[in-house]
C-alpha cells in the first residue's frame, strides 16, 4: 500500500486530502507544518509528499529541496493558492512531480498520484 504525506498549514486541506485519498486505498498522514513532517520522514518511508507552497516557517520550496536531497526517490506534488508562472518554474526546476493551483480538483490530484506511482 502506497503511503502519502500531506503538508499544509490549513487543516481543511489535510482533512480533505486524507478523506479522498484513503478512499483510494492509500495510507495518508497529514501535517500542519514542515518541520515535524520532515522528522517523520526519518522514521517512516513515504512514496509521495504533497506540500503547500507557502507556509509559516519552512515553505514548500525548502521542503522540496530537502526531500530531493535526502530522499530523491520520493515524488513531491506542490499545491498553492498563489500560483503564477514563476512559482511553477521554480518548482519544476526543483524537480517537482506536479504542480497544482488551489482549489485542486481532487480527481486530477488522484490521477497525478497514480502517474507518480506508475513511474516507479
Amino acid at each position: 500500500m502506497s503511503r502519502i504525506m500531506v503538508i499544509d498549514d490549513e487543516k481543511i486541506v489535510g482533512d480533505m486530502s486524507r478523506m479522498s485519498l484513503e478512499q483510494e486505498g492509500y495510507e495518508v498522514e497529514t501535517f500542519l507544518n514542515a518541520e515535524p513532517a520532515l522528522a517523520r520522514l526519518k522514521e517512516e518511508q513515504f512514496d509521495i509528499v504533497i506540500t503547500d507552497y507557502k507556509m509559516k516557517g519552512m515553505d514548500g520550496m525548502e521542503v522540496l529541496r530537502t526531500i530531493k536531497t535526502m530522499y530523491p526517490e520520493i515524488k513531491v506534488i506542490m499545491i498553492t493558492a498563489f500560483a503564477n508562472l514563476d512559482t511553477a518554474i521554480e518548482a519544476l526546476r526543483g524537480d517537482v512531480h506536479d504542480f497544482f493551483p488551489k482549489p485542486v480538483k481532487i480527481k486530477e490530484l488522484k490521477a497525478s498520484i497514480k502517474r507518480a506511482l506508475q513511474k516507479e
Binding site: 499544509d8 490549513e10 481543511i12 486541506v13 480533505m16 486530502s17 499545491i79 493558492a81 498563489f82 488551489k102 482549489p103 485542486v104 480538483k105 481532487i106 480527481k107 490530484l109
Partner: peptide, 13 residues
C-alpha cells in the same frame, strides 16, 4: 462547485 467536495480548497480561495 469548488465547495462541493470535489476540490481541495483553502481559506484564501
Amino acid at each position: 462547485d469548488k465547495l462541493g467536495g470535489g476540490y481541495l480548497f483553502d481559506i484564501t480561495y
